[in-house]
């Protein structure tokens, strides 16, 4: 989608066009989930946060005054959703404990194959290391790894000059490499997947 298409769609969504709002969400939800991953509190569930973000976008789209600032506006909504989730973290931990009892060790979808488990561990370890970086570096790096998101789009979303983003990304890559070389990044538990998803 070109910037002009994006602007037009945004304007129509603000005016109450439901179809336009769906298109906007579809085009932006992937990187918004990466923003949530960068900011979500421990124990939070990405799917729940995304659902709440979608709801908040829907509720507040009419408050968006400048369609040119769609990306930073969406990012703010996502971050606020994550912060709000953090406030009720204790409650969520309780819910998570309940959910964990649902895991079925005999579930064939659970990966028991050693090679696959090792590969998954590697990916999860890299993501966990990225999530340990300082927020200034963490978010650009995670966003950069979302397929199709350009450095310019990241700069626009974070409301920063592109040169600043480039510098932060360059440092973030080094910091990530150093963190992984330290081998101090534990493998996080496998993310939960809702049945049927």
């Amino acid at each position: 989608m070109t910037d002009m298409d994006d602007r037009d769609t945004t304007q129509r969504a603000i005016a109450g066009d439901r179809f336009a709002l769906e298109i906007l969400w579809r085009d932006h939800r992937r990187w918004l989930s990466a923003v949530l991953l960068s900011h979500m509190p421990n124990g939070a569930d990405l799917e729940d946060l995304l659902q709440e973000t979608a709801m908040n976008v829907c509720r507040k789209i009419r408050d968006l005054r400048d369609p040119e600032r769609l990306r930073p506006w969406l990012r703010t909504i996502a971050i606020n959703t994550a912060i709000s989730a953090g406030r009720s973290a204790t409650l969520r931990r309780k819910v998570r404990t309940m959910d964990d009892t649902e895991l079925d060790p005999a579930d064939p979808s659970i990966d028991h194959d050693e090679d696959h488990a090792t590969a998954r561990d590697t990916l999860e370890r890299v993501l966990a290391a990225a999530q340990r970086l300082h927020p200034d570096y963490r978010e650009p790096l995670i966003l950069k790894s979302v397929r199709g998101l350009s450095q310019r789009a990241i700069a626009e979303a974070l409301d920063l000059p592109e040169t600043t983003i480039e510098t932060r990304l360059a440092r973030a890559r080094r910091m990530l490499r150093q963190l992984l070389e330290e081998k101090g990044v534990p493998v996080p538990p496998a993310p939960r997947t809702a049945p049927g998803t």
Partner: peptide, 10 residues
């Protein structure tokens, strides 16, 4: 991790 996004819409 973000594949779940495609199942969620407003």
């Amino acid at each position: 991790r973000t594949a779940i996004a495609s199942s969620i819409g407003p």
